[in-house]
């Protein structure tokens, strides 16, 4: 029971950062009825099997209604709001994916997808608030005009939250999937976490003195990944 509680707490901590960022951008945008419908309709796909009958009307009813208004009344706002609703549901869907992940790869993919999508939506929401435009249109503008990304600067506590959730995720993965060999490989967890943190600290420290630290980060990760692939993959296969 205690183990289960600790695992649930770690999973909660993993999901906390995407959820806080999602709450932040939800507070910044204007919540229209069709945006909420779009959000709920995609989230309804995770309903339990006995309520699955509600999924089809929840998805099709707002979509057909907004499309009918566009065609008959020539008002595109409802359709755009619905699309925005679908968009803002993405981090939440990915967060549910973290809860339901069955293996390490799924856990990691959904975590990164949730974090990335929530941050992008936060950036889009900030831009939408500044320009008083609709969320969906701002997103299209941001992707068309890449300079727009440079104007957005996230608050410092985002970095702290991301570090916290990353370590929680790594610890959770170790506890949940590392059931065997824990005794032998217990030190690996500490060693790898320390080395990864040191590398991140090195890149951050470098960025304080020099302008572009991305190249250094890429070099470190690239070299280690290449070495790993060579050492544990290609050479082993060749020998075996």
């Amino acid at each position: 029971m205690k183990v289960r509680l600790i695992n649930m707490a770690l999973l909660g901590a993993t999901m906390l950062t995407p959820l806080i960022i999602s709450a932040d951008y939800m507070a910044r945008i204007v919540l229209t009825p069709f945006l909420m419908l779009g959000l709920l309709s995609l989230l309804s796909t995770y309903l339990p099997p006995r309520y699955q009958f509600a999924v089809i009307p929840l998805i099709y009813a707002p979509a057909i209604t907004s499309l009918a208004i566009l065609v008959l009344d020539k008002q595109p706002e409802y359709l755009i709001d619905l699309a925005s609703g679908y968009l803002v549901s993405l981090p939440l869907i990915a967060a549910v994916g973290i809860l339901r992940s069955q293996n390490l790869r799924a856990l990691l993919s959904t975590y990164i997808a949730s974090l990335t999508s929530s941050y992008f939506l936060w950036a889009i929401a900030v831009q939408a608030g500044a320009s008083k435009e609709r969320l969906f249109l701002v997103m299209i503008n941001l992707f068309l005009n890449r300079q727009g990304w440079g104007e957005i600067s996230p608050p410092q506590y985002f970095a702290g939250l991301a570090a916290f959730s990353s370590i929680a995720m790594v610890t959770y993965a170790w506890r949940e999937y590392g059931s065997a060999l824990r005794h032998d490989l217990g030190e690996a967890f500490i060693v790898t976490a320390t080395l990864a943190s040191l590398a991140v600290a090195l890149v951050v420290a470098y960025s304080l003195f020099f302008s572009d630290s991305v190249a250094l980060g890429l070099l470190i990760t690239g070299a280690i990944s290449f070495y790993t692939l060579l050492r544990a993959g290609v050479l082993e296969k060749w020998r075996g």
Binding site: L115, T116, A159, A188, A199, I220, R231, A232
Partner: peptide, 18 residues
């Protein structure tokens, strides 16, 4: 901010595999 998270995870799993 996202880049650092990605670096952390990639280095963690690479070193772990080794």
């Amino acid at each position: 901010f996202l880049f650092l998270v990605s670096i952390f995870l990639q280095i963690y799993y690479s070193v772990y595999i080794l």
